[in-house]
């Protein structure tokens, strides 16, 4: 094989498979994408780096919420959200969700939260991607009775920024609830596959 051919092969591979370049992105199986037709409400947000930076230019520095959002997205490379809200329960199967979860069972991803609730059927998984001991991405998969949500945030996120993400934007910060009389859910934290 000539030197030129040897040099061209990786280039052709990269051009032919752009998915290789976007390996961090959440890929929804066709079955999940089809859920949009069943959903009462669908939210689909696809914002890559340039789009995020452009959108953040319109965030007001005077609004505290928007100021925090601007700080949060400053170094992000992408935000992808799919949220389906259904009228009835059972609109999606466990296999649909499992197919998405399976994408993040790789060494580079750590499942830091995995909640399986027998009480209300709410299942939440949070995966972190660490690069050089810094967070490089987060994936949230929330499967509720009538709602299915996938969130993929790509880019460096500081822990305090993450806390802001959970506590701001109109959602009050979590307060510890009084002790419940019975266990509600099973949780796996720190699990890594």
């Amino acid at each position: 094989m000539s030197t030129i051919t040897r040099n061209l092969v990786p280039l052709i591979l990269l051009l032919a498979f752009p998915a290789v370049l976007r390996a961090q992105e959440l890929k929804l199986p066709p079955g999940v994408e089809k859920l949009a037709s069943k959903a009462k409400e669908t939210v689909e947000v696809n914002m890559d780096g340039p789009m995020l930076h452009w959108a953040s230019k319109f965030l007001s520095a005077e609004d505290p919420e928007e100021r925090k959002a601007a700080k949060l997205v400053a170094n992000l490379k992408g935000i992808y959200v799919r949220s389906y809200e259904f009228s009835d329960e059972g609109a999606y199967t466990a296999a649909d969700v499992e197919a998405v979860r399976a994408q993040f069972r790789s060494p580079e991803w750590s499942r830091v939260v995995g909640v399986r609730s027998e009480h209300d059927g709410d299942n939440v998984d949070v995966f972190f991607k660490l690069e050089n001991e810094k967070m490089a991405g987060i994936v949230i998969i929330s499967a509720e009775a009538k709602e299915l949500t996938f969130v993929n945030i790509i880019g460096p996120l500081e822990v305090d920024q993450l806390a802001d993400l959970g506590g701001e934007f109109g959602i009050p910060k979590l307060k510890t609830k009084p002790q419940s009389s019975k266990p509600l859910a099973k949780a796996d934290k720190g699990e890594q596959k």
Partner: peptide, 12 residues
């Protein structure tokens, strides 16, 4: 963007 952050925040 704000909607995406709100959804991410609520799920967290």
């Amino acid at each position: 963007l704000m909607l995406a952050l709100r959804i991410a925040g609520s799920k967290l």
